[in-house]
Design a protein around this nucleic acid. Sequence first.
DNA 1: CGGTCCTCTTGAATGGCATTCAAGCCAATG
DNA 2: CATTGGCTTGAATGCCATTCAAGAGGACCG
Lengths: 183, 183
Amino acid sequence: MSKNRRPKASQEKRAEIVTVARTLFVDAGYDATSMGRLAAAAGVASNTIYWYFADKDAVLIAVLDDVMADAWDEYQSVAAEPISVRLLWVVRQLQQLSRLVSTVHARAGRSPSVALWHDNFHLQTSSLFRSELEAAGSAADSLDAEVMIGVFAIEGLLMHPLSEERQRTVCDALAARWIPPPL
Amino acid sequence: MSKNRRPKASQEKRAEIVTVARTLFVDAGYDATSMGRLAAAAGVASNTIYWYFADKDAVLIAVLDDVMADAWDEYQSVAAEPISVRLLWVVRQLQQLSRLVSTVHARAGRSPSVALWHDNFHLQTSSLFRSELEAAGSAADSLDAEVMIGVFAIEGLLMHPLSEERQRTVCDALAARWIPPPL
DNA sequence: CGGTCCTCTTGAATGGCATTCAAGCCAATG
DNA sequence: CATTGGCTTGAATGCCATTCAAGAGGACCG
């Protein structure tokens, strides 16, 4: 930063690579997207990507952050709905990411940085989930277990595409467990 | 089969490759186990594996079948226990396979044969689960949803190693949901 | 016994992949 | 205008899954 910089276009190019990688990872999958194809789609040489990212896993993490930032923004639009509606919204929104969910779990076993991202993701979503359940007045004794069951169920829904009807059935059953019985 | 055969040692060698592949896939992971390493550990040339298996995914499927056959055999020893005990047993037994669980989901997106194995696995476990819940007298209206929540929760437990205590908490919470209330 | 067919094994390709290396371009600073 | 450092690249390197062509060697037939 001392002498020379051309910083604007640089960060734009990084963002462009992330955008391209995001569509490729989501549509074709992480394994099916070689650095060569990604580079070609972004209009650069394969090497160039390594100036912006340490390795392919770093690109994955940037894509994950990008995806989650968007998802969080859009979540605000349904934040006031009842929990079963929000659940279904989450599942529908994130279903297009099923490839990414599998990829994160597969890469977490090989890449420490992806493992870290995965752990932090679970910490965040679990704590969000927990305050959700507390606010709904769910039984406090098995709160931990309920949170984990909820997170795992959503992960399962994301990884195993089901018909809309079955998705709603599962979301309703989860919500029914958490909100105090209607009467 | 018409003229010549030396069949005994042949099938033994295939079984030996599966055994070696099983320990490597479980301990090091599918991606981390190259065909070269697998072949070396089995005492053959890399090519030789391709005489017994179509490709690496076929080896994976043979390993999965091997693992599930053993698990099913051992399951008989706890078949008479109450459901929460059996749940915990399943989770503990299969936890060592967490690498395989992630691998199956990752490969299912790329290999039709692994996808088929995965679908059949879910069909079998879901139907097993369903009769379990029916026998326990669980509410029939949301049976589908409960089955899926149970399967997803177990998959989550397998993929995300937790302390024994939290595992038990989750298993108890699942079981409490299914068995008619104690009083 | 000699030939032949089949099962099984292998060394040496082939093509793809992530990643690295060394060299150079080009904008801005001095 | 010369230098410097951000940025780009063609050409390696080394690992990988998979294929190919060639060949052992046992079993059967005559």
